[in-house]
Simulated scan of single mutants.
Amino acid sequence: MTNKELVSAAGQLLGKSEHSWNEATVQVAALVPDGSSRRFFQLRGPDRKAFIAILPPENDGRGIAEATSFHRIGRHLRQAGVPVPEIHAFDQVTGLALCEDLGDQRLYEQVAEQGIYQSLSLYEQAVRQLARMQVRAAEGFDPAWCWDTPRYDRQLMRERESGYFLRACCTDLFGLDFDREAVEAECARLADEAAQAPAHFFLHRDFQCRNIMLTGHEVRFIDFQGGRLGPLAYDLASLLLDPYAALPQTLQEQLLAVYLEALHEEIPYNAEQFRREYVFLALQRNLQILGAFAFLSQVRQKSFFVQFLRPALGSLCALLAKPEAAGYAALNHLTDQCRQELEKRS
């Protein structure tokens, strides 16, 4: 789709006249995505109001399905009171979505510019809003809206998380020779443990500081099109383990306590049970992060992600050292192999 075609399509969706809304009166700026293959543009009309236009990747058969999920889930989240951008219009045929422009300040930039401790109140706001979203957005959520899988389950853990880590990170990126049978057995046991957590809550599945926008002093959540039903602790782990920010352990504990306080305002949930579930779901998330960063840096040739492999491996080691994670010797050894290989390449 050319810029002229994009402007014309957006104008039709917004009910604009061709006289006032055309290539001559609308400014189009392409935006650089992170790991996504979707295409993003800022459209600024003659009245200076800006919209974010999102298009599916070209020649991707699943792109329309993903775009449709973005629209349906986004509308549901907003109706549930979740701080997500307003979706002004959507075209089912092209997958074009026109959204509220939230600006360019993310929690990621806030931490980089102001520091983690100066950003603590925003993190506290984010985890409180997270607890509300997970509970309230689960009500009336239709799994048919999901373009990928309707629920976070054991199969997804094995294929998209531990399997992703072994394939993209350990084999493809580092070329490691390891005891695959022993590691696979431990990954299966880890998935069994993680799958014990109740999974009927709303799961964002990529809840990290680059997906949290800031408008003034308010947090806003984006990139929710992969949402589905799942357990509570996974999204919290995504934020607290986030290699982009590398939160100190003391702050992780502090924010976990704030989250539990907010959760208990919504539903009764045993705190000790949650903390145990958190360890296993955090391990799953950590494996997914490493698989994704390895894939994006090597296959997609996005060198930006290489710098985050070290903190991600560090957090995986710290999780495996917890008492709840005792008995994962093969996975522990493999993590050490990854760290050693990364050091060789530094």
Rank of each mutant, 00 (worst) to 15 (best):
T2M: 03
F295E: 07
D104M: 02
R78C: 09
W145I: 04
R228T: 12
I222S: 00
L281P: 06
P198Q: 08
R220A: 15
E18Q: 13
A50R: 15
D336T: 07
E324C: 00
F51K: 15
E100N: 12
N286E: 12
L239V: 00
A233M: 01
K322G: 06
A80H: 02
E58S: 15
T215V: 11
H200F: 12
Q125R: 13
A131V: 04
A330K: 04
A321G: 10
F293L: 08
L102Q: 07
M213T: 06
P56W: 03
Q249I: 00
V111P: 01
F221C: 03
L107V: 01
E193F: 09
L214M: 12
W147R: 11
K49E: 15
F70W: 12
D336M: 02
A80G: 13
L256N: 08
Q340C: 00
G45K: 09
T25H: 03
A312G: 06
V111I: 10
R136Y: 03
G15H: 04
S303D: 15
G327H: 03
Q298D: 10
Y269W: 09
L251G: 02
D148W: 14
T94A: 02
A326M: 04
N59V: 12
A89N: 05
A191N: 07
L31G: 01
Q307T: 08
E109A: 03
Q125V: 06
K344R: 13
R300M: 11
H200R: 14
A282Q: 14
Q340P: 04
E343G: 10
Q208Y: 01
Y244A: 02
L290V: 08
T25N: 06
K4Q: 14
A112H: 05
L309T: 09
V299Y: 10
K344G: 11
G15D: 06
L55V: 06
E277K: 01
L102G: 02
Q12K: 14
P323D: 03
L232H: 08
Q254V: 00
N22C: 11
A29P: 02
V306W: 11
A199P: 08
R228G: 13
A245L: 03
F295V: 06
L240Q: 12
G15S: 04
I73K: 09
R210G: 04
Y117A: 11
I116V: 14
A197V: 04
Q118E: 12
N332M: 06
G11F: 13
P46W: 01
Q42L: 07
Q252E: 09
Q105A: 10
F174S: 15
A194T: 10
Y164N: 14
M157Y: 13
H19F: 00
